[in-house]
Amino acid sequence: MSRSGVARTIDHDEFDPIGTLALVVLYFVVLTVMWLFTYFVEFLGHGPTVVGLLPLG
């Protein structure tokens, strides 16, 4: 749990967080795929999901 794994020092101007950008893009791609899955596979073409009545008599 120490910082001994650090092999080099990168300062502010040298650091370009391109990997973070890639992860953010991947995040939105995954969200889009999940949305498409939920809408087209889980919902579209299905009837009501709660089936039955409370017997009140």
Partner: peptide, 23 residues
């Protein structure tokens, strides 16, 4: 999300990580 992931990426690259996802 941006700031914390960018900070982790900074650490990973200081530890020798490279590439778009390889870090």
């Amino acid at each position: 999300a941006f700031t914390v992931v960018a900070s982790m990426e900074h650490g990973a690259r200081q530890r020798g990580g490279a590439g778009t996802f390889g870090w």
